[in-house]
Write a protein that binds this DNA or RNA. Structure first.
Lengths: 90, 90
DNA sequence: CAATCTGTTAGATATTTGCCTAATTATATA
DNA sequence: TATATAATTAGGCAAATATCTAACAGATTG
């Protein structure tokens, strides 16, 4: 849960996730969308991978990243619970 | 959105929100639940307030904090959108 | 095999964050 | 009015974070 929220905290990483929700992308394609050095993007991708929000596979010289949504269920549940319990509070 | 995810990133702040979902609490009551100095808790409460996740009202010398769930809808929508679009991806 | 391309790792650095103690503000009470 | 109590503000500091450039690793291609 901690890794997840940590990953979601950064705007760059959230934008990467938004890009990946459309279709898979290579590291280079992702980096090209930001005015930021490739190593910086690599750092963010690694962080997202550790949070299990993305997966990656290597094909030739390219590394393709995909969005992984299953971990998001946890955060969803946590937030929903807050809203729910908040509601039936007197 | 940025302030919201920033607020949710820290475990202490998440725990404060969980406490407040049960019932309102004064700053002192919240601080008592953590092995952390009152100023530190004050800092977290201020951050939560800036993110509009809590509100506060002063009564005498006490300041009571309440959970505010409306902003959570934004994060919920953002996450749901990721999951949804993630699902019907080829 | 040498050059090139994609991507990551290493190392350095400025900024942000989360914590502390000390001081301050505001309220209540002896 | 002096003192105690609740909470915040101020100032400082160590650790975490996000960025960069340089160097490297692996794959492709002339």
């Amino acid at each position: 849960m901690n890794l997840l929220f940590k990953a979601l905290r950064d705007p760059t990483r959230r934008r990467i996730l938004e890009m990946l929700k459309e279709h898979d992308l290579t590291a280079g394609q992702i980096a090209a969308a930001f005015s930021m050095s490739p190593p910086s993007i690599s750092y963010h991708l690694d962080l997202l991978k550790h949070a299990r929000l993305v997966s990656s596979r290597k094909k030739g010289q390219f590394v393709t990243y995909s969005l992984e949504t299953s971990v998001l269920d946890d955060s969803l549940g946590w937030i929903l619970d807050l809203i729910k319990k908040g509601k039936h509070k007197k």
